[in-house]
Amino acid sequence: MVLRWRIWNCLRSARPKLRSSKSSKITIRAMIKGFFRCPLDVTGRIDKVLADQFPEVSRTWIRKAIEEGRVTRSDGSKLEPKTKVFPDDELMVDLERPSCSPIEPYDYPLKILHEDDHLIVVNKDSGMVTHPGDGTSADTLVHALMHHCPDQLCPIGAPKRPGIVHRLDKETSGVMVIAKSEQAYHSLVSQFSDRKTQKKYCALVSGQLSGTEGEFNGAIARHPKVRVKMTVAEHGKPALTTWRLIKRFEEGFSFIDCEIKTGRTHQIRVHFSNASNPIAGDLTYGFKQNGKSPVFFSRVMLHACELSFSCPRSSERLTFRAEIPDDLELALQKLTPTE
């Protein structure tokens, strides 16, 4: 109670100077939990008013706080994001984010491709789950990041997905970007959503592909019977994968690179399986290990080799590449290229 009155007295004394005094603005922005009185010259939707007064907090988070009842009238009555507020309206505001601390740090030698104050780019190893979920253990990428850069990941998505803006399947290796700041988080989420990123993969697929390049555009939906799988279906979401042949092998495999223009779950795996060319090692989507093959595939031979996006701060185009991992390189060396 003493803290609330202290905040209230500070705001009250600074109120006439909200627009002209830089120090009073800082006082208001620093307070993200406590008693809040709307400034004299402000009228509008509560979510917009708070977004203006607390620019370091995203409007999405503010809306969520309002909907969860963490922003109320001083008498405890609930509000909606669209509720209109007026000068001198008294509110109780709690815009604090949950701590990421419930995740136990995992000491793991991450392969860092780039790191700054806003984001970190890693080359994820095959076998590592991106973030915690039902049935996962305490050795996910998020656990490893909590050890590498504790208290630095963007809190959006905490505690299980702090800073996570996209994912790679457990067995898929390669480039991933994770946000540290909210600015980076919202910029990257927007870029992935608006398809302004460029995502390139390489894969070893079974069978001899027809031609040297092509595309798959089958819509993808959840499998009607096996819920952990996806499938090509007319009622699914649009998906586009382009591919280019790099090398054919006598043992009945093709090494290709591909680019996904959309980001559907298991997209590359589903599209090649649907074309009767499942990715080597992908038992979920129809690959069958041949006992006579010189290579035993212990995982899905899919690697995210390149990721491009715009820098959240400068808009400069950034491109990060991850070399082909040892297990995929070894498999290619054991196979016999065709003429």
Rank of each mutant, 00 (worst) to 15 (best):
Q191F: 09
K199P: 00
M146T: 09
S193F: 09
H186A: 01
M230P: 05
V142K: 06
A219D: 12
H186C: 04
T172D: 07
E213L: 08
I156Q: 09
T172Q: 06
Q208N: 13
F192P: 00
H148W: 11
G174Q: 05
D139V: 10
D151C: 09
K170V: 12
S173H: 10
D169H: 07
V142L: 01
V175T: 09
S193H: 14
T172I: 02
A221S: 15
F216N: 00
S173Y: 06
F216K: 09
S173R: 03
T197H: 12
I156L: 15
V189M: 12
G157V: 06
Q198P: 04
A184V: 02
Q183C: 09
K180Y: 04
E213N: 15
T172L: 04
I178K: 14
I164Y: 07
K196W: 05
T197R: 02
C154D: 11
S187E: 00
T212G: 14
I178V: 15
I178H: 14
T140I: 08
N217Y: 10
E182G: 03
V142E: 01
L168R: 01
D151P: 02
T212L: 13
A221Y: 11
P159Y: 13
M146A: 14
S193W: 07
G207S: 10
D139M: 02
S206E: 15
K180C: 04
L141K: 12
M230G: 01
K170A: 06
G157D: 09
R161M: 05
G174H: 00
I178G: 12
T212E: 15
I164H: 11
Q191P: 06
G174D: 01
G218N: 05
F216D: 02
M230L: 04
I156G: 03
G218F: 10
Q191D: 03
C202H: 12
Y201A: 01
K225E: 15
